[in-house]
Amino acid sequence: MKWIRRSDCREQCSALPADHGNGVVPLSALKPGERGVVSQVLCGRNLLCRMATLGFTPGAEVMMVQNYGRGPLIAQVRGARIALGRGEAGKVQVRRET
């Protein structure tokens, strides 16, 4: 995994297609009740560090708790419920669990 400078990060995130075909999607694409496994987090060092501390590290299992398609969302990771801005959730790449 590579961390990317803030400016690059934005483009990366917005340029991401909804699905790479291999089941990897931004966290914000999960529907409530859907589960996934974090594959990587694409963002600047500070945010990356906070995300990793809260449990968003590669391999972590996440479950979407609330996602209305706009505004912030709630995801469960490592047993805790974390509220994330949509932008922040877009930076977490997850492999959808079927």
């Binding site: 945010l47 419920r81 801005g85």
Partner: peptide
Amino acid sequence: GERAAFIMELPL
């Protein structure tokens, strides 16, 4: 400046 990231825990 950029709006800071919104991440916070929702405790039980």
